[in-house]
């Protein structure tokens, strides 16, 4: 037991170092890409001001933003600020980036968490059903549905849901996470949930087929193993076998996969939030990219990388620690 405890810490430290190195590389890569852009952020900023700006004022802004510094110096300047938690000021929202990320991440987190749980649970159950009836009619139908769903662009699923539930059935409003004309702090929790349903549903439709198909394959492997055959010859009924051998063996790989799908989840939320004009990180990042809000774009990029890397690290740790088979091999 002592050994595993030490290994646990060991794996954790190694993963953390790797994560830090990746985040540092992400910061460099994203900064490099943004600096390469021919799009002139100062010009965009001045356009956004919608007032005439004299050349002297422009030079002042450039001086303030450090436009004329060499890029390497600018990068280190930015990085030291970021390490101190200072992500700069957003041009489009005119507020500190850290504040925007914090506020919007809560919205996004609610959305992603709902979708993550729904897609995880339903995907897993469907995967079990498919694996149990492998190559028989329930499996064939569900497999077709999974394939079709994974071939649909997320925004189109959103559009269809909007059309069906918003326009035809009129159950849900078209867009906007809060009722029009109500201040965002006055919106009740019920209303927030009401506006969350469609985007969360879209996002879970996008991601559940992966987990379902994965679980299906794994369960099929387990059900064809020698120990299941032995259990059958002992006369255990199918449900007990499924409960004792099937689900126990499949749930861990499924959970690992679910944790390592944070990148897709975030990507999907960018789309879903834009379709439903949901005020989360996803709609902020595309707005930042389109309106050349560099500090916001870089801030959210770093944050999303942190989010994804955390998911991957959890997946890695789960995989290493909980599965005794792998733990043995690694000794």
């Amino acid at each position: 037991m002592k050994m595993t405890g030490r290994k646990l810490i060991d794996i954790f430290i190694r993963n953390s170092i790797k994560m830090l190195s990746l985040l540092l590389a992400v910061s460099f890569l994203s900064f490099l890409l943004v600096s390469l852009s021919p799009i002139d952020p100062v010009g965009q900023y001045i356009l956004g001001l919608q007032t005439a700006v004299s050349p002297e004022q422009r030079a002042e802004i450039e001086e303030y933003w450090g436009v004329n510094e060499p890029p390497v110096e600018r990068y280190f300047h930015w990085l030291t600020e970021v390490l101190q938690g200072e992500l700069g000021e957003s041009v489009i929202y005119r507020r500190p980036v850290a504040e925007i990320i914090g506020e919007r991440f809560i919205n996004s987190l609610a959305l992603m968490l709902c979708a993550w749980l729904i897609s995880g649970i339903f995907g897993f159950i469907l995967g079990i059903v498919m694996g149990r009836y492998y190559d028989r009619w329930p499996d064939k139908i569900l497999k077709k549905i999974c394939y079709i769903l994974s071939s649909m662009p997320t925004f189109w699923i959103g559009l269809l849901l909007l059309l069906i539930f918003g326009v035809w059935l009129k159950w849900f409003p078209i867009g906007f996470s809060s009722p029009i004309g109500v201040l965002s702090r006055d919106v009740s929790l019920g209303e927030k949930i009401y506006h969350l349903i469609l985007p969360a549903f879209t996002l879970s439709l996008m991601s559940f087929s992966g987990i379902a198909l994965h679980t299906r394959e794994k369960l099929w492997d387990v059900m064809n193993s020698d120990y299941v055959l032995f259990a059958r010859t002992r006369g255990e009924d199918e449900w007990t076998i499924l409960k004792r051998h099937g689900i126990r063996n499949v749930i861990l790989p499924a959970l690992t996969l679910q944790f390592s799908s944070f990148a897709e989840l975030f990507g999907g939320s960018v789309i879903a939030e834009n379709v439903f004009s949901y005020p989360g990180l996803g709609s902020a990042v595309s707005a930042a990219g389109l309106q050349s809000d560099l500090s916001l774009l870089l801030g959210i990029t770093l944050f999303s990388a942190l989010f994804v890397c955390t998911g991957n690290m959890i997946a890695n740790l789960l995989y290493r620690i909980v599965d005794p088979g792998i733990r043995e091999v690694k000794e």
Partner: peptide
């Protein structure tokens, strides 16, 4: 590979597209 998997694809494509002037 891990570095490229670490940024959500959509965000990375946005950055590259931004770098090339959309």
């Amino acid at each position: 590979i891990d570095l490229f998997m670490g940024i959500p694809h959509i965000v990375l494509i946005m950055l590259i597209s931004f770098a090339l002037g959309r």
